[in-house]
Design a protein around this nucleic acid. Structure first.
Length: 285
DNA sequence: AACATTTTCAACCGCAGGAGT
DNA sequence: GACTCCTGCGGTTGAAAATGT
């Protein structure tokens, strides 16, 4: 038997009575209940004993991409989009790696975002989304626009803007670029420089010193864990820039299950003027 | 209102690689 | 070392929803 054949006969993946397609409410309940009693992992055992007629793989995917309680759904914020652009310029299509820097977002969601939004823009420009030209377009048009959105958002909520810690971590991490998927392209550096212009990194030690209860804490104390209980909050970036009244407002918003920020991602990032502007720029240089 | 087209995103697939035997 | 099983990753697909005509 060839290696390929061996790989394909993966235990639980054969069998005719396996269900496929969209999950039903009953299946979701079954899976959630099983995991709440037995924990995550050992997916093939789970598939076998939970009563689900699904493969372990399918169960894993459903849990990690949809059912897991701390998953953040909905449109990506400008900060998150910025982070994806930056990280993708460093690592390429390393979705799971990128997802590690976006707390509570799944690799599948990031991958979908890239394919449906970013690659769409590349198609409109008629250039390859992995090309230097496209990265230059991102740097010269998209990133400034996202930064502007961030500024706008921060101006309506606070007097001072600061970056998300996860983004800061990336910008500070001089080693990450060594792992780049396609670092023959030099745009990530210039993109980072743009970001640095906006973010005063010298202030970082104090930007994240306010906790939800209003007490002071170290920056490390208010990273990810603290905002994870507020789905409507844009991470430590917002934590650092808000007053107590804002926090109460957010708590209200959380209780109401609504979104605190305006839905900025509904704005098209590039309109036709932008595209023509870039085309002129790209083809004249 | 009806149909066509486009967009979104959940779910599938093949493959690679690690762990255990 | 060979084999098997399991998990996780990235690419792709297709149904449903949204939008346009």
């Amino acid at each position: 038997m060839s290696n390929i054949m061996k790989k394909r006969s993966n235990g639980n993946e054969k069998g005719g009575d396996q269900r496929k397609g969209p999950w039903t409410l009953e299946e979701d309940t079954l899976l959630t209940n099983y995991i709440s009693h037995n924990g995550e992992g050992r997916w093939n055992l789970l598939a076998k004993f939970s009563g689900l007629k699904r493969t372990g793989k399918s169960c894993r995917l459903r849990w990690l991409n949809y059912l897991k309680p701390d998953i953040k759904r909905g449109n990506l914020t400008p900060q998150e989009q910025l982070l994806i652009l930056e990280l993708h310029s460093k690592w390429g299509n390393r979705w799971s790696k990128i997802a590690q820097y976006l707390p509570r977002r799944t690799d599948n969601e990031i991958k979908n975002y890239w394919r449906t939004r970013v690659q769409k823009q590349a198609r409109q420009l008629n250039i390859d989304s992995n090309s230097h030209k496209f990265l230059e377009a991102v740097r010269s048009l998209w990133v400034p626009r996202l930064i502007h959105k961030m500024k706008d958002n921060s101006n309506t909520n606070t007097t001072k803007a600061s970056p998300p810690d996860s983004l800061v971590a990336v910008l500070r991490d001089k080693d990450v670029s060594h792992e780049s998927g396609y670092n023959n392209i030099d745009c990530s550096t210039s993109m980072s420089q743009d970001l640095h212009k906006f973010m005063d990194l010298s202030d970082l030690e104090t930007t994240c010193s306010l906790n939800f209860d209003g007490s002071q804490g170290t920056s490390s104390q208010c990273v990810s864990e603290d905002y994870s209980s507020f789905p409507c909050l844009e991470g430590e970036y917002m934590v650092a820039t808000m007053g107590n009244s804002d926090i109460l407002q957010m708590q209200d918003c959380y209780m109401a299950g609504s979104t605190y920020e305006e839905d900025v991602t509904q704005d098209p990032m590039w309109n036709m003027d932008d595209i023509w502007q870039f085309k002129e720029y790209a083809y004249s240089s």
